[in-house]
Simulated assay, not measured.
Amino acid sequence: MQAAPSGTQGSYTGGIILMSTGVAFLSANDAVAKALTSHYSPLQILFLRNVIALPFTVLIALVMGGRPALKTYRPMAHLLRGVLWVSATMLFFTSFIYLGLAEATALIFVAPVFITVISALFLGEKVHTRRWLAVLFGFIGVLVVIRPGGATFQAASLLPVATALVYALLMLSARWVDARETVWTLLVYLTGTAALISTFIVPLVWVPVRIEDFWLFAAIAVLGTGGMTMMTQAFRLAPAVIVAPLDYTGLIWATLLGWLIWRESPDAMTVFGAAIIIASGVFTIFRQKGKAS
C-alpha cells in the first residue's frame, strides 16, 4: 500500500520527530477529551470531533494522495472499520470519567498483545514461543495495573482493556481494505464513517454546547487529526521497529498531563504494571520486525 522507507539517516530522524510529536498531539487530544467528559457524553464528544475533523482529513488526503485517495474499492470494509473505531473511542472516552489519564493510557497499550492472540487463534499466523511469552507478560502487566479482587479494583479499569481489544480488531481489519487504497484513504473513511454512524445516535445524548467549550472541540479535532497524520508519515519515513516503540512515550505525556491538570499521580503498582505492558509490546514489535526481515 505504501512504499518502503528510503532508509536514509535524514528520513529516520524525520520519522522519529514526527512520531514523537504525533504521540504528544494524541496525548493532548485524550486530555482535552477527558476534560470534556465532565459536561458531555463520550458519544457527543466523538461526534463533534469527527464532524469538525472531516474537512481537514479530506484536505490532507487530497494534498498527500490526490483525488485517488478519496476512492474506495471496498466501502463495506470501511463501514465495519468505522463501527470498530466508534466502539473503541466510546469505550476509551468513557474510561476517562472513572480513571486517571495515565492508568487508562497504560492499559490501552495491551493492544499489541491482543493483535498477536487474534492473529494466532483466528487468522492462522504462526506465533513462536517467545511471542507467546510476551503475550503472557502483557496480560500479567494488565493484572498488576487493575488488581482484580483487590481493594483498589474498579470495574471501569476493564474499559481501556476492552478498548485495546477493539483497537486490535481495527488494526487487523486493515487487511480487508483493497491493496490499491492508501493510508490516506483509510484516514478519510475512518473519520467519515465514524461521523456518519454517530450522527444517528448522538441525538439521544445531545446537550447544548457551551460557548466556552467550542475551542476545546476544535482542539480535539486538530490534535487528533494532526497526531494521526504525523504518525502515519512517520511510518512512511522510517522502519516500524524504529518509530513504533515511540508510541509508548504517550504514557509519559499522559502522566504529566494528568498531574498538571487533575493532580493525578499513578501509584507504584500502576507504574510497574505499565512497564511490563510496554516491555511486552516493544518485544512484540521487534519480533514482528525480525519475522518480516
Rank of each mutant, 00 (worst) to 15 (best):
Val135Ala: 12
Ser87Phe: 00
Arg81Thr: 07
Ile60Ala: 14
Phe92Pro: 02
His78Asp: 06
Tyr73Cys: 10
Ser119Pro: 08
Phe137Thr: 12
Arg67Glu: 11
Phe56Ser: 08
Leu91Lys: 05
Val110Met: 08
Thr105Glu: 07
Asn50Phe: 11
Ala61His: 02
Leu133Ser: 12
Ser95Cys: 03
Tyr73Arg: 15
Gly66Pro: 05
Phe114Met: 07
Ile108His: 10
Ala104Cys: 03
Gly124Asp: 09
Trp85His: 15
Leu133Glu: 11
Glu125Leu: 09
Arg130Leu: 15
His128Asn: 15
Glu125Ala: 11
Val83Phe: 13
Thr129Cys: 13
Ala102Arg: 01
Lys126Glu: 13
Ala120Thr: 07
Phe56Lys: 00
Leu91Asp: 02
Phe93Thr: 07
Leu84His: 04
Tyr73Met: 13
Ser95His: 03
Ala104Gln: 03
Ala53Glu: 00
Val113Pro: 05
Phe56Asn: 00
Phe93Asp: 00
Tyr98Cys: 00
Arg49Glu: 03
Lys71Leu: 14
Ile97Met: 11
Ile108Ala: 12
Leu101Met: 03
Pro112Lys: 06
Leu121Ser: 10
Thr94Trp: 09
Ala104Pro: 02
Ile115Tyr: 04
Trp85Gly: 08
Val83Ile: 13
Trp85Phe: 15
Phe92Tyr: 13
Pro55Ala: 01
Ala111Leu: 10
Leu54Met: 12
Ala120Arg: 09
Thr105Ala: 10
Lys71Ser: 14
Leu101Phe: 01
Ala106His: 03
Thr72Met: 06
